[in-house]
Design a binder for these strands. Structure first.
Length: 384
DNA sequence: GCTCCACCGGAATAAAAGGGAA
DNA sequence: TTCCCTTTTATTCCGGTGGAGC
């Protein structure tokens, strides 16, 4: 009987020196090709050091363009710089996928600033009052300045309306840095709020293949020992990610997964073919994870879509609902609900829809197409 | 008992584009 | 050919219900 099971596994060795630096949440000391954007943020925030509430700032850009990293980077720099100055600046980061309503965000802010607030039971007004009360705290004889980063704000606005912006913009020592994936997220903001939300916009363009190579290069120095990577690995990861709209997160994922595959195969080096393998694996995991967290009814909808796709039927919304009713056997929700599900599935990128009109007498319809691999979906759906 | 909020569905309204009138 | 009409469904609006934390 061998000793501890971990002992044997630990001895196996690994291509990684520091795997964490390939995590997309890892914040490196240097963000290649984002200096301009970070400086732009810093310029707007300069006011805070003079004790003026900075303008609100909005960052746009697709997934994996470094928005969150740049914002956090700027935030840390500001904190460092302000530390020994006679000005009290607080910066708080909130991801709106974790705090999905105005109430939750405000309550979270109170918590972060040391005021305990219950999750439920209080009215929205009470929480807002508590929040404003905390902000009255004076340091060096002046009020503190609060900079709130609202990451993925489009989710919050879509879910809960623009109340959060209304509240925050009307609190005078608060500045908002919002991060959005979509340029048109302002359509969720009503004009009465928009007038007080005078934001400066910063756009984060997708990374090009060469820029991705630079990023991966820096990270791989942290993550791997020398001469682990074969020369074509990084360019391959970069090229694949560049195709995915310049998504650096995806590029890092590819590199990390390739490394894991190398470990599994007990290979001393990472080869180009492993990147291709990694690509399939990531796709597979993404879909499987996503689907396992979906509510039952939504899975049924997806099942219906899969069934119709396999039968090579053109999927229109009416037919989809029929199929769904068949599959769900009585335990159904209304078409109204399915409509929302379809939207959510589209947001997740599993399906895509195209509404067309068939002309006079035939009306409108939605054509739905599956965006992910049939086989992967089938596995994910029936393996749970 | 109060509030928030996720989930739900009915009803009203908007939209697209082929068909048919001019 | 042009332009408006029709149809059917997409989409929005809005209010109800019930569980959960307090």
């Amino acid at each position: 009987m061998p000793a501890n099971i971990f002992e044997g596994l630990e001895k196996k060795g690994s291509v990684f020196k520091d795997k964490q630096s390939l995590d997309h949440r890892f914040l490196p000391d240097n963000l290649p090709h984002r200096r301009e954007q970070i400086e732009a943020i810093a310029t707007y925030w300069l006011d805070a050091l003079k004790h003026i509430t900075p303008s609100d700032v909005t960052i746009f850009g697709k997934t994996g363009t470094g928005k969150t990293a740049a914002a956090k980077f700027a935030m840390n720099q500001l904190q460092d710089f302000a530390a020994d100055k006679e000005v009290k600046i607080r910066t708080e980061y909130i991801r709106c996928t974790d705090y999905t309503t105005e109430y939750q965000v405000i309550a979270r802010l109170c918590q972060l600033m040391g005021r305990d607030v219950p999750y439920r039971g209080w009215t929205k007004g009470e929480v807002i009052n508590a929040f404003r009360d905390v902000l009255k705290t004076q340091v060096y004889g002046k009020r503190i300045i609060l900079i709130v980063i609202l990451d993925e704000i489009d989710i919050l606005l879509k879910n809960d309306g623009d109340g959060i912006l209304y509240t925050l913009t009307r609190t005078d020592n608060v500045s908002i840095l919002s991060i959005s994936n979509y340029v048109d997220f302002k359509k969720f903001i009503k004009s009465r709020v928009l007038s007080s939300f005078r934001d400066r916009e910063i756009v984060f363009p997708p990374y090009g293949a060469q820029q991705l190579v630079d990023i991966l290069g820096e990270r791989s120095e942290l993550a791997f020992e020398d001469s682990i990577l074969e020369s074509d690995v990084i360019p391959l990861c970069a090229a694949m990610a560049a195709k995915e709209e310049g998504d650096a997160r995806y590029a890092l994922d590819l590199l990390r997964t390739s490394g894991e595959i190398a470990d599994e195969k007990e290979s001393k080096t990472i080869k180009g073919e492993m990147v291709r393998e990694a690509k399939d694996k990531i796709e597979h995991n993404k879909v499987t994870d996503l689907i396992s967290t979906l509510p039952t009814q939504q899975q049924r909808v997806l099942e219906s879509i899969l069934k119709l796709t396999i039968e090579k039927e053109e999927i229109i919304s009416g037919k989809l609902y029929d199929t769904y009713k068949e599959l769900a056997k009585g335990d159904t929700v209304s078409y109204r609900r399915i409509f929302d599900f379809i939207n959510e599935l589209e947001m997740l990128g599993i399906i895509s829809t195209n509404t067309i009109s068939r002309g006079r007498g035939k009306g409108r319809t939605n054509i739905i197409t599956l965006q992910c691999d049939k086989g992967i979906l089938e596995d994910a759906l029936y393996s749970v």
